[in-house]
Amino acid sequence: MLGQLTAQAREGAQLHHARVELAEALQREMLPASLPVLPGLRTAARYAPAQHGLDIGGDWYDGFRLPEGALAFSIGDVQGHDVAAAAFMGQVRVCLRAVAAVVSDPGEVLGRANDVLLSMDCELFATCSLLRFDPRTGELQGARAGHVPAVWATVDGRHGIAEDPGGPPLGLVPGAGYGVTRRRLTAAGSIVLLTDGVVEGPPFPIEVGLERVSRLVREAAGGDPDELAAEVMKVADSTGHADDAAVLVISYDGHDGDEDDEGDEGRDGPDRAGGGEA
């Protein structure tokens, strides 16, 4: 009898392990195989599943080229931890890519993507951050849909947590607007996009997690983005790693553009917020 119970327990453990491996493989196959780079711009990313249970998460990161030489980067988190969440994540990524190919303003991209996702009558929603970088001007435009703020630092000692105005998660509110923040990148530094699984857990407040990430970014600003991504992902171990987690690092070597133009982007609409240098 004891031997039979032991065999059943072993079989159950092996089955669970196989399901976890399958879930992780499914999630990773939906993430991009590579990220775009430019002279002076380096990128790196990490994804890690939850440490416990069969959590097929909806966290993602993405990077892709846009018309006229710009680059776009997104990161996000879909509600839920199952196959439906992973499938919805894939739909959100494709939707953002399709809209961004014909619409340059990140806020408008999120707004149109939100409308498309609502038209699909899916009960899920997703938080998201979307950045658009123009290498000709060094301008970085960003919009958020209910997502964790980005963390940034420059080699000259400036740093911050980008609590920029945004809008609601995608797939919740019809006709939602999304504010756009514009900054001109001049000094070398790093920007870190992440999901809440990195910085938040049941016993771990998000403010504490963001401060730990901010310290890491300040120490490694402008350095190897791959090493920084690995160090930031380690913060997830402190949170209990009850959720899957994603990190996207963008390191910038500096811009030699006309500094007289910096910080004058201003406010050009009711749903947009002006920015300054970074």
Rank of each mutant, 00 (worst) to 15 (best):
D121E: 14
T186E: 14
T195W: 07
A150T: 03
D156A: 11
I191D: 01
G175A: 02
D134L: 15
S190D: 07
A187P: 00
A143F: 03
P205N: 11
L193M: 14
R184F: 01
G142D: 01
V173M: 15
V155R: 09
L193C: 07
T127M: 10
S119G: 13
S190Y: 05
L118G: 06
A176I: 05
Y178F: 12
A126W: 13
G166E: 09
L170W: 10
G171V: 06
A187S: 11
T195G: 07
S119W: 04
E123F: 11
V199H: 12
R183E: 12
G167R: 08
I206H: 12
A145R: 08
A145M: 10
L117E: 00
D196V: 03
P165M: 13
R183L: 13
D134Q: 14
A113I: 02
V208I: 13
L131A: 11
P169L: 06
H147K: 09
G111V: 01
L194D: 04
A143D: 07
Q141F: 13
M120R: 09
V151T: 03
G138T: 08
G138A: 11
G209P: 00
R184Q: 15
V199M: 10
R144V: 00
G138N: 10
R158K: 03
S104I: 01
I191S: 04
S119D: 09
G107H: 02
D164T: 06
R183M: 13
L130Q: 04
Q141G: 08
M120L: 09
D164K: 10
R183H: 10
H147E: 09
T137V: 15
D196P: 02
E207R: 12
A176E: 04
R182H: 07
G197A: 08
R182Q: 12
G166M: 07
D115T: 02
V180H: 04
D121P: 09
S104D: 15
L193K: 08
L118K: 00
V116M: 00
G157N: 01
P165I: 08
A145E: 06
A162T: 00
A150D: 04
Q141H: 14
L140Y: 03
G179K: 05
I191T: 10
A145F: 05
Q141N: 11
P165S: 13
D105Y: 01
P168F: 13
A143N: 07
P165V: 07
C128V: 14
L131N: 03
V151C: 03
G142A: 13
A145N: 10
L117M: 12
G157W: 00
V198P: 00
R112H: 10
F204W: 12
G157R: 00
T186R: 15
L118Y: 06
V198H: 08
F204N: 00
A162Q: 11
P149N: 07
W152Y: 12
P135C: 14
Q141R: 15
I206M: 15
T195Y: 03
P174S: 11
R182G: 04
G175F: 06
E139F: 12
A145H: 08
V109T: 08
P203S: 06
A188Y: 02
L131E: 02
F204I: 00
S190L: 01
